[in-house]
C-alpha cells in the first residue's frame, strides 16, 4: 500500500477503439511521474481513470490503497484536472475556490489565500475568471487542486499557456508538493517540462506502455544521440571529431548554420573522448548539448515517429 497508484492490465475501449490496452503503472508517494505519448495514445483516458471519471473495462486499479470499483468516483485525497481546469467564469478566483472549499465542507478562507499565493494569483483573487488568460486559469486550476490537500495530484498539460514566470511558479509548487509526499501524475507534450519536473516517466503509444521507469534509465537506454557542439575552433573540432572512434559528423542540414557549430552523432563514451581531445588541443568547448533531449529521442523512437519533421 506504499504506492498511491498501482495499475495492472488496465484496458479501456470506446466502441471499436481500444484506448488502453493492458496498462501497468506504478506511482510512488513523493514522485512526479510524467505521462507522455502522441495524440490518441491514451494519456487522457488513463488520467480520467485515476480521477474517477471513467471505469476500466478490465484490469486492477488501486488508488491511494483503495481498489477502484465500478462506480465513477475517486477516493478522498485525489485531485486534479484533465482537458483544462473547470472554472466558472461568472465567479471570481476566490469565489471559485470558496465554492469548491464549501463543497468539500471547508468554509475557512485561510487555505484559499494560501493556495492563491502559492500559484501567484493573490493580486487577481477578486477578479472574475471570465477575464483570465489560459495560463491564469491553469494556475487557478492548480490552486483548486491544492485546496483539497491531495495525496495524489493528476494534471493534464499543466503548463499549457503558462508564461516563463507562471511555469516557474507551477514547477515550484509541484516540486514542493512532491517533497511533502504527494504523488503527482502529469501529462505533457512539453518534453522540457517533463524532464524538468519528473523523476519517472511512462511513454504511451496506441494505448500501450512503450516505456515506464526513471528518466535516467531512459537516457542510458537511448543509444546514440545528435549533439550540438560549439567550440572556439570549428575546423579543429571537425577534424578531431572525424578522428575519434564512434563519432560521426552529421550534415547539419535543417539545423541553424553557424560557423562555430558542429553537429555530431555519438554515444556518450565517444563524446567524452572527443571532449578530452578538444581540451588537450586547446579548443574551448562553449556548448555541448543534445539536439533533442534523450526523452524526446526516446519518445520519437518508441512511438515510431520520424525524428526530424
Amino acid at each position: 500500500m506504499d504506492k498511491p497508484v498501482r495499475a495492472r492490465g488496465i484496458t479501456k475501449s470506446f466502441g471499436e477503439v481500444v484506448a488502453l490496452d493492458g496498462i501497468d503503472l506504478d506511482v510512488a508517494a513523493g514522485q512526479v511521474h510524467g505521462l507522455v505519448g502522441p495524440n490518441g495514445a491514451g494519456k487522457t483516458t488513463l488520467l480520467g481513470l485515476l480521477l474517477g471519471l471513467a471505469v476500466a473495462d478490465s484490469g486492477r486499479l488501486e488508488i491511494l490503497g483503495t481498489p477502484v470499483g465500478r462506480a465513477l468516483a475517486a477516493p478522498d485525497g485525489v485531485a486534479g484536472f484533465v482537458d483544462g481546469p473547470g472554472l466558472y467564469p461568472s465567479l471570481t478566483a476566490r469565489q471559485n475556490l470558496a465554492a469548491l472549499a464549501a463543497l468539500r465542507g471547508k468554509e475557512q478562507t485561510a487555505g484559499i489565500d494560501e493556495v492563491l499565493h502559492e500559484v501567484g494569483l493573490t493580486d487577481l483573487a477578486d477578479d472574475r475568471v471570465r477575464g483570465f488568460s489560459l495560463g491564469m486559469r491553469q494556475r487557478l486550476g492548480l490552486a483548486a487542486a491544492l485546496l483539497t490537500k491531495p495525496r495524489l495530484l493528476v494534471l493534464d498539460e499543466p503548463s499549457n499557456g503558462l508564461d516563463p514566470a507562471g511555469k516557474k511558479h507551477v514547477h515550484g509548487v509541484l516540486a514542493k508538493l512532491a517533497a511533502e509526499g504527494t504523488a503527482v501524475v502529469l501529462s505533457s507534450h512539453r518534453m522540457d517540462d517533463v524532464e524538468a519536473l519528473c523523476s519517472d516517466v511512462t511513454i504511451l503509444s496506441t494505448g500501450r506502455v512503450a516505456f515506464s521507469g526513471p528518466l535516467t534509465k531512459l537516457a542510458t537506454e537511448t543509444h546514440e544521440l545528435d549533439y550540438r557542439l560549439v567550440t572556439s575552433d570549428a575546423a579543429t573540432a571537425r577534424r578531431l571529431a572525424g578522428d575519434t572512434s564512434g563519432i560521426r559528423v552529421v550534415d547539419d542540414t535543417g539545423v541553424r548554420r553557424d560557423a562555430e557549430l558542429l553537429v555530431v552523432s555519438a554515444p556518450v563514451p565517444a563524446l567524452d573522448d572527443l571532449v578530452k581531445k578538444l581540451v588537450l588541443a586547446g579548443v574551448a568547448v562553449r556548448e555541448l548539448a543534445p539536439v533533442i533531449s534523450p526523452l524526446e529521442a526516446a519518445f520519437l523512437a518508441l512511438t515510431e515517429q520520424p525524428e526530424s519533421i
Partner: peptide, 15 residues
Amino acid sequence: MTATVATPAAVRPVP
C-alpha cells in the same frame, strides 16, 4: 523526501 500512503482512502461523495 518521500512519504507513504498510510491508510487506504475512502470514496466519499459530497453530500
